[in-house]
Amino acid sequence: MYEEASNSSVLMLLHTAVYPFLAALIISVIAAKLLRASSYLGYIGGFIAGLSLIHSGLSFPPAQAIDYYSITALIGTVSVLCFTNIRQTIPRNILGLVLFGLSFYLLLNPVLKHTGLLLSLSWAAASAIVTLVYHLLQVQPKELELGNDKAERKLSVLLPTVGLMIVAGAAAPVISIGGSLLIGQLLGALGAALFAYVIVSYLTKVTQVFSCIPASLLLGGLITQSHVLADIPLSVILLITASVFVTPIAVRFSSELTNKQSIGVIFIQGVISLLVSGFCLWLVWPESSLY
């Protein structure tokens, strides 16, 4: 019995962290060499690899709510292309809001459709607005003007992605214990894939200003689904969502960050995420296990 439990734990670790990390690492290296402006495809590939392993019933076209993460990854990629090529702020933000809303609607509607279209649209709109605000905070105009050549040599340009990675990793045990092992595992897979991407991007000096858009959509989808699908309390979801904004706010209201200062921001994000995770674990911990 203990051997079976041990094997199950090892298999879960492989599916949740090791395989997504390795897949993202390999794809990121290939994308960095062949598609320098599209190295973010690495963590998308790593997450999809983890999704296919964790959710064995993955199908395309999507049949269940979880299946729509493949569509979310595609929408995220399209969003990166739109944000990169559209220089006018208002059209870019409007298009981004529409794409973000579509992503969240597809993820949430299969669960909420029995409650009516209005609720699905409301959740999608609210989630899209929060995601857009996140990106408006973390994108600095000077980075857009200077292009990627200067920004990609600094750790600071990877801070938003690192922040999402930390939040995903910290939220994974909360969601797993609180109501959905599946979504918790997917959060772990996303965190592992982002970690591999960050390593490759930093070492190869290949990154992109809007490369964290797909990650924010995937993380946002997992967070919202954990409430809608797994009944995680709304207070927990709001706390986790608030912790996502620590890094972009620090970057937005700082001058050009050195690598040492960037490490300080990462440390602050890590501490806050751990504190939020610990408090949320206390909120969602099954009452029966407290006695």
Rank of each mutant, 00 (worst) to 15 (best):
2 Y>R: 12
6 S>C: 10
9 S>L: 10
12 M>E: 14
13 L>V: 10
14 L>Y: 12
16 T>P: 03
16 T>M: 10
17 A>P: 02
18 V>P: 11
18 V>I: 15
19 Y>D: 06
20 P>L: 03
20 P>I: 04
20 P>T: 06
21 F>D: 08
21 F>R: 00
23 A>R: 02
23 A>S: 13
25 L>F: 12
26 I>T: 04
28 S>T: 08
30 I>F: 07
30 I>R: 03
31 A>T: 06
31 A>W: 04
35 L>H: 06
39 S>A: 14
39 S>H: 03
39 S>I: 08
41 L>Y: 00
43 Y>S: 02
43 Y>Q: 04
47 F>C: 06
47 F>S: 07
52 S>G: 00
56 S>K: 14
57 G>N: 14
57 G>C: 01
57 G>K: 15
60 F>S: 09
61 P>A: 06
64 Q>N: 14
65 A>G: 04
67 D>Q: 14
67 D>T: 10
68 Y>R: 15
72 T>Y: 00
73 A>I: 00
73 A>D: 00
76 G>E: 01
79 S>I: 04
82 C>K: 11
82 C>L: 15
85 N>Y: 13
86 I>N: 01
87 R>D: 07
88 Q>S: 14
89 T>L: 11
91 P>V: 03
92 R>E: 04
93 N>K: 03
94 I>W: 07
95 L>W: 05
96 G>D: 01
96 G>V: 03
97 L>P: 02
99 L>W: 04
99 L>S: 05
99 L>K: 05
100 F>R: 11
103 S>Y: 08
104 F>K: 08
104 F>R: 03
106 L>H: 07
107 L>W: 11
109 N>V: 09
110 P>L: 05
112 L>P: 06
116 G>R: 11
117 L>A: 11
122 S>Q: 07
123 W>I: 07
125 A>H: 00
126 A>T: 08
129 I>W: 09
133 V>I: 14
133 V>Y: 07
134 Y>Q: 07
134 Y>L: 09
135 H>L: 02
137 L>V: 11
138 Q>K: 15
138 Q>N: 14
138 Q>G: 13
140 Q>P: 00
142 K>S: 11
